[in-house]
């Protein structure tokens, strides 16, 4: 097939959206944390936990949506741990986040081994099936690409709208932005900085957990080791690329998904000549390039990574 012709296949675009979905959840989650002034490097581990918790719930015989809820709750629990350590206790957000990632992923693996001590091939579950939206899915091209996805993908898009609305239109969103920009100012206006920051981190981590669950409940049908494979770190880069705005972050995730889907197809096409590892590197390289491109004019939330201690002097 011609390299350019691939770009005009609906399969490519459908795949792009599928690949972008977990990143959308995770990027939104990280964005929420960072808007409140907390960088959450626990993201990689929290996604691992979400993937595992969602999968084991379904494997144990509960419904797929129960799996999603459990994944979000599991994410929220680790988010709460991160929040307690970095918000009221003011620990280094970098170190704590890495610690959360190590702890969360090792716990997931521990319980996986505990649940399935002997298996060598991971057991499968029946994942979410595509849901054709009546009417819209019959549209030419767009219908195939956009409206025959699994419910979790639709949920990801709904989440973008919700988070965007939250930040732009509601008093709570304003409070979140304020504690990320200038916590002392928020405090002076009677906002409980600690509560708002912790709430944002917990909610954001729940989204990350759902992003992890997308992998086990929608993209694949089982849980295996290292399955997050840097998607969390890529999401951290996407937040910067998206200038901390949900809409732009969505565009970033979609561009990323498109690129990834395209390279997968190129790989089949050029695999004989070019080592496949070079293709696999591209997403990470792309993330770094994206960071370099935007970093010059990146408008970080002013209080990002700055612990706030009331009455400190």
């Amino acid at each position: 097939m011609d390299v350019l012709a691939i770009l005009f296949t609906t399969a490519l675009w459908a795949a792009a959206i599928r690949i972008a979905s977990p990143l959308i959840f995770a990027t939104l989650g990280e964005l929420l944390c960072e808007r409140a002034g907390v960088i959450n490097l626990g993201i990689e581990g929290i996604m691992t936990v979400g993937a595992f918790a969602g999968w084991i719930t379904v494997y144990a015989g509960f419904g797929l949506w129960a799996g999603v809820v459990v994944a979000a709750l599991a994410g929220a629990v680790f988010g709460l741990l991160h929040a307690v350590l970095v918000v009221p206790l003011g620990l280094s957000q970098h170190v704590t986040g890495i610690g959360i990632t190590l702890l969360a992923s090792s716990l997931a693996y521990y319980f996986y081994r505990l649940a399935l001590p002997e298996v060598t091939t991971p057991p499968k579950i029946e994942p979410f099936q595509p849901w054709a939206i009546p009417g819209l899915s019959d549209l030419p091209f767009v219908g195939e690409a956009l409206f025959r996805q699994t419910p979790l993908t639709y949920l990801a898009f709904i989440m973008v709208v919700l988070v965007a609305w939250l930040l732009a239109r509601t008093p709570l969103g304003l409070a979140i932005k304020a504690v990320g920009e200038n916590p002392a100012a928020a405090e002076a206006q009677g906002i409980n900085v600690v509560a708002v920051r912790m709430g944002a981190v917990v909610a954001g981590s729940a989204l990350m957990g759902m992003g992890g669950a997308f992998l086990t409940l929608s993209a694949f049908n089982s849980f295996f080791f290292d399955m997050i494979n840097g998607r969390g770190w890529i999401s951290v880069a996407l937040v910067v690329f998206g200038s901390w705005r949900p809409g732009k972050a969505l565009i970033g995730a979609l561009l990323f998904g498109l690129f990834d889907a395209y390279q997968l197809r190129l790989q089949q096409w050029a695999g004989a000549v070019v080592p496949y590892q070079l293709f696999l590197m591209l997403p990470y390289v792309l993330s770094i390039i994206a960071l370099i491109l935007v970093s010059r004019r990146a408008a970080y939330p002013r209080a990002l990574m700055v612990p706030y201690r009331k009455g400190e002097r």
């Binding site: 840097g230 770190w233 951290v236 910067v240 990470y284 770094i288 960071l291 970093s295 990146a298």
Partner: peptide
Amino acid sequence: FGVDEVVTTLLF
């Protein structure tokens, strides 16, 4: 360029 090294070293 002011690129956060945490993410770049992780991706590396």
